[in-house]
Design a protein around this nucleic acid. Structure first.
Lengths: 113, 113
DNA sequence: TTGACATATTCCCATATAGGCATATATTGA
DNA sequence: TCAATATATGCCTATATGGGAATATGTCAA
């Protein structure tokens, strides 16, 4: 079996860097395809294709505006990824605490000398 | 060009669900390969292969323990993903606020009648 | 040394890509 | 109607993939 489809879920859709860049570019607000093309220096067909993938997983929505098409971020769709990765926040804080404790220990020893 | 390699970065490595499941299983602490196999009901070769990918991007490290090999989570490697997705937290909260404001508006109207 | 156990690697294959290019499909204004 | 603009789609190809099965490698215990 090949890899899961890019449109399978948010994690697969966002594996590709250009698609994350497109989302980043949409944080500022609704944008036309051409604006994204200019901002990111990607080819127009590539941007359209990436937008299609992002739209299929619900990360963006679009509306017509004359001959342009405006895309908007749907940030709520990022919650599953945020929730998943946030579970590990505690884990790396614990580790940081241990490092922190170790540094403090070194410091105490230094002061003792 | 094909898709970026699974070992290209953390986002690509974690696009695949089984690999996220393996990380989840390692939150509890260091585990042998066989334990993960039992926990997740995956084939042993698949688990070894997934662990290889996770190890290549630094998400896990391993040490020998007799004839077993214990894998440990390296949570710090998840920070880039956490940081990236956290940028959007504000965006969906704003949207929630708007919905919240709308609901409150409806409520005010209801009370006025 | 031998056999049992634990893990890693190799071989195989169908398949979904990303990107480039060319072209189709709106939509507008004159 | 026609030309210009904006976006989407179709075609093409090299390539990395995940999973299954078999097997290699490594390590212990007796």
């Amino acid at each position: 079996m090949p890899r899961a489809s890019a449109t399978a879920d948010v994690f697969n859709a966002l594996a590709e860097g250009p698609r994350r860049a497109i989302l980043d570019s949409l944080i500022a607000g609704e944008k036309a395809v051409g604006t994204i093309v200019d901002d990111l220096a990607l080819s127009q067909p590539q941007v359209s294709k990436h937008l299609r993938v992002l739209s299929e997983v619900g990360l963006v929505t679009s509306r017509a505006d004359g001959r342009r098409r405006l895309y908007r971020l749907e940030p709520a769709r990022l919650r599953p990824m945020h929730d998943w990765v946030s579970k590990y926040e505690q884990a790396w804080n614990e580790r940081m605490d241990r490092v922190d404790g170790y540094l403090k220990e070194l410091q105490r020893q230094g002061e003792a000398e």
